[in-house]
């Protein structure tokens, strides 16, 4: 099967500005996912740059904008894509080269919510235990692979990436707010109570629409707001 691709190309050492390059590639029956096609393209044109690692939707390296929607190349079925398949880097982040973006800002926001359990109590003899019910609350939160599909599809993150934590960061924030082993819940809420950090979310749910792990950052953000309301009312 022959497929037609249009890829965003930009090499800051050579190009004045980015451009779209056409590729027609003959695919084998074993090429099932978009990443298979990209690897095949790379064999033809080794100047093409993109990130990939696990090739099974676990590492989150190959997030890109596929026909206008963010997703992971490795779990996107080739046969479902409308041709020409337009591949661009994740929107809103600086492009380093071709499909590779600079994720510094994204990870800065992730680190700003302190993504680790903080517990000031003396450690018990063995581990800190959770009841199965308390543990259940973390389902749908801990599975995030930090691919940045959600945050880079969020207009609030495009306009204020330095101030708005973004859906990925806020999902992670709730993951630790909801963790019964963490003792910093009030400090975490204080950290987020800011018109920019949390309240730039206008619940448009682009994040939910694109999440390749089918997580729901909007719901998590709503739960953070619920806790803040409970705190003051």
């Amino acid at each position: 099967m022959k497929m037609h691709f249009q890829l965003y190309r930009f090499n800051p050492d050579v190009d004045q500005k980015p451009y779209m390059q056409d590729y027609h590639v003959e695919l084998e029956d074993s090429d099932k996912k978009l990443l298979d096609a990209l690897v095949r393209l790379k064999a033809v044109d080794d100047t093409l740059s993109f990130r990939r690692s696990c090739r099974e939707g676990v590492c989150g390296s190959d997030a890109m904008n596929i026909n206008g929607k963010n997703g992971l190349a490795c779990i996107t079925d080739l046969r479902d894509l409308k041709q020409p398949v337009k591949i661009r880097p994740l929107p809103g982040l600086p492009v380093i080269r071709d499909l590779i973006v600079d994720m510094t800002q994204f990870f800065k926001q992730y680190h700003s919510i302190k993504p680790y359990v903080i517990n000031d109590d003396p450690p018990p003899e063995r581990e800190r235990l959770q009841s199965p019910k308390d543990r259940e609350e973390l389902d749908g939160l801990y599975e995030c692979i930090l691919c940045a599909c959600c945050s880079t599809s969020c207009p609030s993150f495009w306009w204020n990436p330095d101030k708005f934590v973004g859906p990925a960061g806020l999902l992670a924030a709730y993951r630790f707010i909801a963790d019964t082993r963490d003792t910093q819940v009030n400090e975490r809420l204080d950290n987020l109570e800011d018109p920019y950090r949390l309240f730039r979310c206008h619940t448009i749910m682009n994040c939910v629409d694109v999440c390749p792990k089918h997580l729901n950052p909007t719901k998590a953000i709503g739960k953070i707001k619920d806790l803040m309301v409970k705190r003051v009312v």
């Binding site: 700003s112 330095d162 204080d190 109570e193 800011d194 920019y196 949390l198 309240f199 309301v229 003051v232």
Partner: peptide, 15 residues
């Protein structure tokens, strides 16, 4: 410098 942490926003959202 990136400055954040205005410690308000909930009231406006609730209002």
């Amino acid at each position: 410098r990136p400055v954040i942490g205005a410690h308000y926003g909930l009231k406006d959202w609730l209002v």
